[in-house]
Write a protein that binds this DNA or RNA. Structure first.
Lengths: 242, 242
DNA sequence: TTAGATTTGTGCGTATGTATG
DNA sequence: ACATACATACGCACAAATCTA
């Protein structure tokens, strides 16, 4: 078994030492069949249960472990890329930093038909309500946002102010009664189309960040959103540490 | 002040109830000038400090709060971009999905001198130990990784196997005794140089994702890493809710 | 510069609740 | 019904970082 001595006076917190030992064992594949229970770890490493739980909490937040009440703690199948695995990225931009007011300009809204999109989203109907907005400060734009809403009543959006920077979800909630419960985001890089470059005020040779979002309400897709961002004006940032 | 009664028998954990109350107050801007200290919240809501800390921990993980030892807890200025604020992005690629073995090829290691980099990192010396690796499966590469280590003994890396996919930090730890405690990542988009495109096996007109990492050991920079990724082969993905 | 107060971080102990098998 | 597992909640003490008098 493991049995590595933790050093209380090393300046490194006990839970961090324990997490490091466990992380190494996980990466070697030592716990693939079974991860020790909390009481077992308490006994093995001679620390309190709070310390064990703190270490496990950290490894969960890093994506190494997941826990199920009543069942146990399990190793998550490893991603290939070291420690870029599960940091919390947030969008940070000059607008937020400088405190400039953010504005959203409505470019277009209305029904569109897109068979390819419907197919990739596994939807039976190719009808979408499209909301296209340009976001930025008064001086410059940093994002072009296209939200595709399947199966909604276009009239729901007639009286809604879409120029506010606020969330589309509150609009969805108040306009249609739909509550978004889960979703996914995917970040990639791409080249802008001529129109995108023009709207964002960049050259066609400048690359952009693309975020694709799927939002669900009770396992049902309620929004597909593609946001095109200017990397010089806004970027994703994660801070991590103990 | 606040005073909302929490209900112990409601089925909802006390910390979650407290977090919800605090979140609402935060969004109204009630705590913009000062967020209550832990003992104050204990007194206000008549719960234990662990419960208070659990609620604050959650709000920190959601990006609403940040805490500094000795200073206090503070409301994070809301990012301009709705709800992309605190998702957990992890790198997902074809390699991990298909279960192919990941390999790392050492391209170069040795001392380099870069005054611009030293200046941007606010370092007095422009001497770096550079480790350049190409990562991918046997069939194709998906990332070019350049790690700049200031002030390390080059001999530390003589006997180390850098072709393993494993973390550089364990190398740092064993080779130099340095323990990485904190850091930040920033994701952007860029065009590859001729050499990068060639090494990654892509066209020069294909955009790439760029991740810049800063790693610290006790407030001291110990690594600056720039990773260039091929978006078609690997991307950042976050799932939320549920 | 120093000393003390304040605030979050770490770590211990205990007890009880809830989900699972 | 029972044992096992993690989740919640309480209390206490001291350490480390920060601010202030």
């Amino acid at each position: 078994m493991i049995h590595r001595q933790l050093d209380a006076g090393s300046g490194i917190p006990l839970w961090a030492q324990l997490a490091e030992v466990l992380r190494e064992e996980i990466e070697v594949g030592h716990f693939d069949e079974r991860f020790p229970s909390e009481p077992e770890l308490v006994e093995l490493f001679k620390v309190s249960r709070s310390t064990v739980r703190e270490a496990i909490r950290y490894l969960r937040s890093e994506g190494y472990l997941e826990a199920r009440q009543g069942k146990g703690t399990f190793v998550v199948a490893s991603e290939s890329f070291d420690s870029l695995r599960s940091h919390r990225f947030s969008l940070a931009g000059r607008i937020a930093e400088s405190g400039l007011e953010e504005v959203a300009r409505l470019l277009w809204k209305g029904l569109v038909y897109d068979a390819d999109l419907a197919k990739s989203l596994e939807l039976s109907s190719d009808e979408f309500f499209l909301i296209e907005r340009l976001r930025g400060s008064r001086q410059e734009s940093f994002a072009l946002e296209r939200a595709y809403l399947p199966r909604v009543n276009p009239a729901s959006f007639d009286c809604v102010d879409l120029t506010k920077a606020g969330s589309l979800y509150s609009v969805l909630q108040s306009g249609t009664g739909i509550t978004v419960t889960a979703g996914s985001d995917e970040v990639s890089a791409a080249m802008p189309s001529e129109r995108e470059a023009s709207l964002l005020g960049i050259a066609e040779k400048d690359p952009v960040l693309v975020v694709e979002r799927r939002a669900y309400s009770r396992h049902e897709l309620v929004e597909f959103r593609r946001t095109t961002l200017v990397p010089a004006r806004v970027r994703f940032r994660a801070e991590w540490g103990r």
